[in-house]
Nucleic acid binder design. Structure first.
Length: 423
RNA sequence: GUGGGCGUAGCUCAGCGGUAGAGUCCCUGACUGUGGAUCAGGAUGUCGUGGGUUCAAAUCCCAUCGCCCACCCCA
């Protein structure tokens, strides 16, 4: 382990075995997203810092202390700590509203300078969606539905959907005042963190984990009792829609998102087995954001999920035993050995994944390598086979052996037919 | 950012002042007509890094880097 260089704290390598799991997840997730009409967008990793401070919020921890920020030609730039602001920027910049591109998704890394922990890296990966220009509650329902499908695509069992409404900006501001006033009497007894939250982001006092604080705030006024009529109607319609689709959820009046731009519907999906980082997906509506960033008054809603967390929650181990080659070529005798390079190439031209022993070990050694290579079949070529125009094909998991044509095109057909028979 | 645990072979880990170990993996052979078994041989480490204490440090002390866990925050 005395390695001269190691990756930076909180930055990690994804190795073969894991990459295949990620690819499989991404393929399933993209399919699900496509079914809802989402198209992929890939914003750059670096962006002007101001975009994030404006959108995520000056007072949030993400902006306050977790961004990787530096200077480029006199501009303050940052590695993106999340993608929503960027997608909004791109939406405005390229006039995507006029091109009918209102449903967008992304897959990629984000960066936050936090202390690493299980399910929390400094470079982590998110898959997320943004919908622009749709304000109806049905949209909220669809966005939540596709969120659940994405979580399912990772193989997470028994996800828990938590739902809340934090109202429109007016009811939210009004509620904040009511909440602060109500907690004034117990202020001194709250934990230190909650006392600062009371100043900076009072809603967050409600989801403090300290038991003592929870008891103190148990009877605090609830946001769902202070929604405007519009907000109330919207939330009821979202719930009705979820009910109609048979989607189970739990209303949690204490569910508050940490980013400033959220309004109305907020939601979160939690999974078991992740310790304290059990939130696997989070999102909500952000109707004012596009306008705030200089665009027209366009409603928006979206969510983001942590891919590392999703895969961890699904509890799939690295796919070590995965089949990575279709066949391993085993040669016997100098004639077959000489033809191996060319034969392998011809088989690859038939779109087969082929391995062979370039080092030229004996039969035993080659079979050993065939077994380890993760190939489905060992294809044996010797003098005998060459003469008869045949190869011996051994199924490496069952041990069954049979003969097949030597000619690459015919062999490819033979192997495919055989694989299908067995599936 | 705060608190705690841990860094020894590619991997999992034992050793905890006195010559660096096990299992596994890897390599070679038995093996030029058959791999996963068995047998025989072999390779591998600045004991995370830097400093200190000591006749002697993987072992004790300090610092530092990284990992893990909790807080915080969030996906």
């Amino acid at each position: 382990m005395a390695v001269r260089y190691q990756s930076l704290r909180g930055f990690s390598d994804l190795l073969p075995g894991e990459t295949e799991l990620w690819q499989a997840f991404e393929t399933r997730a993209r399919r699900a997203l496509a079914r809802y009409g989402f198209r992929e967008i890939r914003p750059p990793h670096l962006e002007k810092t101001e975009l994030f401070t404006r959108s995520v919020g000056e007072g949030t921890d993400i902006v306050g202390k977790e961004m990787f920020t530096f200077e480029v030609s006199g501009d303050s730039v940052s590695l993106r700590p999340e993608l929503t602001a960027q997608v909004c920027r791109a939406y405005i910049e390229h006039g995507l509203d006029r091109r009918g591109l209102g449903r967008l998704y992304y897959v990629g890394p984000a960066f936050r300078k936090e202390r690493p922990q299980k399910g929390r890296l400094r470079q982590f990966h998110q898959v997320g969606v943004e919908v622009f220009g749709e304000s109806a509650p049905e949209t909220d329902v669809e966005v939540i539905a596709v969120a659940l499908e994405t979580v399912a695509a990772a193989g997470v069992e028994q996800p828990r959907l938590l739902l809340n409404s934090i109202g429109d900006p007016e009811s939210r501001t009004a509620y904040k005042r009511i909440l602060v006033a109500a907690l004034e009497s117990v202020r001194a007894q709250l934990c230190a963190d909650c006392r600062t939250r009371l100043e900076r982001n009072p809603l967050r006092v409600l989801d403090c984990k300290v038991d003592h604080c929870r008891t103190l705030t148990a009877d605090a006024p609830r946001i769902d009792e202070h929604l405007s009529d519009d907000a109330r109607r919207h939330f009821d319609a979202v719930r009705a829609g979820l009910d109609r689709l048979g989607i189970a959820y739990q209303v949690d009046p204490r569910l508050v998102r940490g980013l400033d731009y959220y309004v109305h519907t907020t939601f979160e999906i939690q999974a078991e087995g992740l310790g304290s980082q059990n939130t696997v997906l989070g999102g909500g509506r952000y109707d004012g954001l596009v306008a705030q960033l200089g665009g027209r008054q366009v409603p928006g809603i979206g969510w983001a999920a942590g891919i590392e967390r999703l895969l961890m929650a699904a509890g799939v181990d690295t796919a070590e035993s995965r089949e990575v080659l279709d066949l391993y070529l085993v040669t016997l005798g100098p004639r077959a050995r000489e033809g191996a390079l060319e034969l392998a190439q011809k088989l690859r031209a038939e779109d087969l994944r082929v391995g062979w022993d370039t080092a030229g070990h004996g039969l035993g050694g080659q079979m050993k390598r065939a077994g380890r290579s993760g190939a489905r079949y060992a294809v044996l070529v010797g003098d005998d086979e060459l003469e008869r125009g045949l190869v011996s094909v051994k199924d490496l998991s069952s041990g069954e052996q049979s003969e097949a044509p030597l000619e690459p095109g015919e062999l490819a057909v033979w192997l495919r037919r055989r694989s299908e028979e067995q599936c």
